[in-house]
Design a protein around this nucleic acid. Structure first.
Length: 824
RNA sequence: GCGAGAGUGGCGGAAUUGGCAGACGCGCCAGCCUUAGGAGCUGGUGUCUUAGGACGUGGGGGUUCGAGUCCCCCCUCUCGCACCA
């Protein structure tokens, strides 16, 4: 008696069984030839999982399960990125502890993941807010500190007035806070930085090692790093001992520098006006420039503003006196905060020069152009130098090199490389993060916490509200006040916590050795498992997580703890699940949770629906009709598969084992071939389409009277194995119903017989002048002459030739023949 | 403004990389069947058509025996960067 597809019973049965048998546990050390470290970006636990997670995890789990069936030692870990602002904000809003809120959400996540049947190695799960994890963040911080890669300085920082904390450059998107969208302002603060700029060149060069990254992503990162080559040039300032250095990519245009500009925040600007009648005007100007938000400051629409500072600089190439201005279009945190202005060849300088009536001098002439006095736009292309005495007539490429050499010889400048990327600001004035392990002693100054005293645990406090400039931790007197490990005198703890991107910059290494109490991980395990063979996650982390993690990987590599300089050479950037074209987000309130879909149609139908929706990289718009879509698409199909399996076992036996079943057997082998290729290409939507065709073929075989039990069982078992990575529950249940003892998920992936895949008959396409006119069944080893003879004997083809002889025959045996007649 | 990517039926999406455009699925149409269900099974479904065909992958040109695919120009959309010296 055929059973119904009762997914509720099936899914709860196997979910429990797999966890009890610990089927997904990875070995401590894999077979070096057969290892696969597959990783998906760990989630942030705010509420339950949503459909975005379900899509990403379903794709990822299909990869992991496929690899396991291919016989690899698969490491497929999961954990939680559990520190961060939302926990704290929820705590403040609801008056509960951020730890409780976080742990409750993690429990909810885990139960949904188990319900969805993801094959994670649960033994390795951890949360970054656990002291057992974050003590190694502190270890990492101290390691960087020892190598002068972690340092503290005062600098204009991005301040989010809403979240009341500073942000790293990477976390400011178009002048707004990456988390809450508030406009970011600049504030001078003393903060901790990681010196990522020391690694800028390697971060750029090693992009080439990431062969499994899209060009788009590599471009995004290389733009962010923003390497530009040029020269540093020293300008003396009249009345001052110290020269001011500028960075320029066009040292060849030095003769065209007609004024000199400092950023309003440049320390020299204030000094130049001190005690003069310009002091008050400058104070007003400076205040106006600094209080502007990043958005206003960098708007290209806004007219540039500036003022003369009453001083002159000396152009080192011709000793010309040029006025020193302060202008808001020069930024303190790019280059040196000072520029030489060449209005004839830089659009921004030109606009400024026109507003303030400053001189414009052409020094580069496009080859073959006439002299002209008035320039409509700044000319920044190549040409030859003019008005540049010793170098007149020299081409741009050559003059850049020769002027730089000249500067070096004269000691007035040097070749230089400048980067756009800034050091990584890691201080946060918030509670729910890793305490920075530094003490401030009255006598010894800044003192790192000794490794033996780690972890510096977060104290339990009552009020998490951000106060402004100090972290809420500052109010925890008992925690803050401690003794200095050097002199034993009184000391205060650093009260800022670390950016949560520190947590996620090395978590993939902790998975290799999550219970290690004496080190963040065992280097031998890292050697065995790294690099990650397949990483997947959203593109949103292109310049945040992915650049920080690459940086930390390189630091650990230099420390000799790991061997690979790149952690994830193969990266799949999955698309988002959107609603009405907009990203699902808490703040928009358009989150769809998987609960309803699972209850109505089961985890398998939901997972399959996600995989069938399109290629993994592509965004997927959640249907406006809701979960009902699953009830029309994948759920009925799974029932169809179920019935096929049930009916197969009621077949009659081998009475038509020969001819009648052969086409179906061929279909099976062809499908295995194509589906295997699709899995290798992560093309799950087309793999499912092929499986649908095979199922259709099996139904057609049956409705044509076929009932060979052995053949149908082979076909069904093949389908089940190919479905196993995608719909693990149904596959497991039917596998057992076919009488197998062990789990289908440790079965080998099906193989195909090439002889059965090769067709001996196929359809030949016959074209006349490139247009399809007939199709003819032919033997697959047909040659060109036979093809032509066959085609010419076709009535249809003769009609279209209209009595003309083909003057050219293009043959692609055995598939295509094109007969070309003369054009008359 | 600069850079990158994408435009294929009513819809989601295929197309072994220059060789039958629209696989597979949704929707729609028809038939069968039944314990009338969120059924199931079978077949059909790009557009126009004088029923021979003609047209058809955002628009226009080109290369080729042959173009969704390659080249040039244009349009639209999405994303990234945006005074970067």
């Amino acid at each position: 008696m055929a059973a119904e597809y009762d997914f509720r019973t099936i899914e709860s049965r196997w979910s429990t069984d797999w966890i009890e048998k610990d089927l997904w546990a990875a070995p401590g050390f894999p077979d070096p030839q057969r290892k696969r470290y597959v990783l998906t970006m760990f989630p942030y636990p705010s509420g339950d999982l949503h459909m975005g997670h379900v899509e990403i995890f379903s794709i990822h789990d299909a990869i992991a399960r496929y690899m396991r069936m291919r016989g690899f030692d698969v490491l497929n870990p999961i954990g939680w990125d559990a520190f961060g602002l939302p926990a704290e904000n929820a705590a403040i809003k609801r008056g509960i502890n951020p730890k409780k809120w976080t742990y409750d959400n993690i429990a909810m996540h885990r139960s949904s993941m188990e319900r969805l049947g993801y094959s994670f190695d649960w033994n390795r799960a951890f949360y970054t807010c656990d002291p057992d994890y974050y003590r190694w963040n502190q270890w990492l911080f101290l390691s960087l500190y020892e190598k002068d890669l972690a340092y503290r300085r005062e600098a204009p920082a991005n301040w989010c007035p809403n979240d009341k904390t500073v942000l790293a450059n990477e976390q400011v998107i178009a002048g707004r806070c990456e988390r809450c969208g508030a406009e970011v302002v600049k504030k001078n603060l003393t903060q901790w930085f990681f010196k990522i700029t020391d690694y800028a060149d390697r971060l750029l060069d090693d992009l080439a090692l990431n062969t499994g990254w899209t060009e788009r992503l590599k471009l995004l990162q290389s733009n962010w790093i923003g390497r530009s080559e040029g020269a540093e040039v020293e300008f003396a300032i009249e009345g001052w001992d110290e020269p001011v250095t500028v960075f320029t990519t066009r040292p060849d245009t030095l003769w065209g520098a007609t004024f000199f500009v400092l950023a309003p925040e440049h320390p020299l600007a204030e000094k130049l006006v001190a005690g003069t009648d310009r002091e008050a005007e400058f104070a007003r100007f400076n205040e106006e420039a600094t209080k502007m938000t990043e958005i206003d400051r960098t708007s290209t629409e806004r007219p540039k503003k500036g003022m003369w500072l009453g001083a002159h600089a000396i152009n080192p190439v011709n000793d010309e006196r040029i006025p020193v201005w302060a202008a808001d279009y020069v930024l303190m945190d790019y280059g040196t905060g000072a520029i030489m202005a060449v209005p004839a060849h830089d659009q921004r300088d030109l606009e400024f020069a026109r507003s303030y009536d400053l001189p414009i001098r052409v020094v580069v002439k496009p080859v073959g152009s006439e002299d002209q006095d008035d320039v409509p736009d700044a000319y920044s292309g190549d040409g030859v130098l003019v008005n540049s005495c010793p170098f007149d007539g020299v081409s741009t490429a050559e003059s850049v090199a020769r002027v730089t050499e000249w500067l070096e010889a004269e000691g007035r400048g040097r070749r230089a490389v400048n980067f756009r990327i800034r050091d990584w600001l890691i201080s946060r004035q918030r509670y729910w993060g890793t305490p920075i392990p530094i003490l401030f002693c009255h006598d010894c100054g800044e003192v790192p916490v000794p490794q033996d005293d780690l972890p510096v645990e977060l104290p339990d406090i009552v009020d998490f509200s951000p106060t402004g400039e100090a972290s809420p931790l500052a109010a925890a007197d008992e925690w803050v006040n401690t003794t200095c490990p050097r002199c034993g005198g009184p000391a205060r703890r650093e009260t800022d916590t670390m950016d949560t991107f520190v947590d996620s910059s090395w978590y993939f290494l902790r998975y290799l050795d999550p219970h290690n109490e004496s080190a963040p991980f065992d280097p031998d395990k890292a050697k065995a498992w790294m690099p990650i063979d397949q990483y997947s996650g959203g593109i949103t982390h292109a310049v945040m997580h992915l650049i920080y993690a690459r940086f930390i990987q390189k630091v650990l590599c230099d420390m000799g703890m790991i061997e690979d300089s790149e952690p994830f050479p193969h990266l799949l950037n999955q698309g988002m699940v959107t609603m009405g074209g907009k990203a699902m987000s808490k703040s928009r309130g358009n989150i769809v949770e998987p609960k309803e879909a699972i209850e109505k149609f089961g985890a398998d139908a939901l997972r399959l629906y996600m995989l069938f929706s399109g290629p993994p990289e592509q965004d997927f718009d959640w249907p406006s009709e809701g979960v009902g879509a699953i009830g029309r698409v994948t759920y009925p199909w799974l029932q169809r598969v179920w019935r096929l399996c049930e009916d197969a076992r009621e077949g009659t036996g081998g009475d038509d084992s020969g001819e009648a079943g052969q086409p179906l057997r061929r279909e099976l082998h062809k499908t295995i071939k194509v589906v295997t290729r699709d899995f290798e290409n992560l093309s799950f939507n087309t793999a499912i389409a092929r499986l649908m065709e095979l199922v259709n073929a099996a139904y057609r075989y049956r409705s044509g009277g076929g009932s060979n039990r052995a053949l149908l069982a082979d076909v069904c078992e093949g389908i089940l194995k190919m479905l196993a990575p995608m719909t693990p529950y149904l596959a497991e249940e039917q596998w057992k119903r076919f009488g197998h003892e062990g789990s289908i998920h440790v079965e080998p992936w099906p193989s195909f017989d090439e002889a059965l895949v090769a067709e001996d008959r196929m359809t030949m396409v016959v074209q006349v002048n490139g247009k399809l006119r007939d199709t003819i069944e032919v033997a697959s080893d047909i040659d060109e002459a036979q093809m032509t003879t066959l085609a010419l004997s076709s009535d249809k083809i003769r009609t279209f030739l209209g009595g003309r002889e083909p003057h050219k025959v293009v043959a692609r045996p055995p598939r295509l023949l094109n007969l070309v007649t003369s054009k008359d």
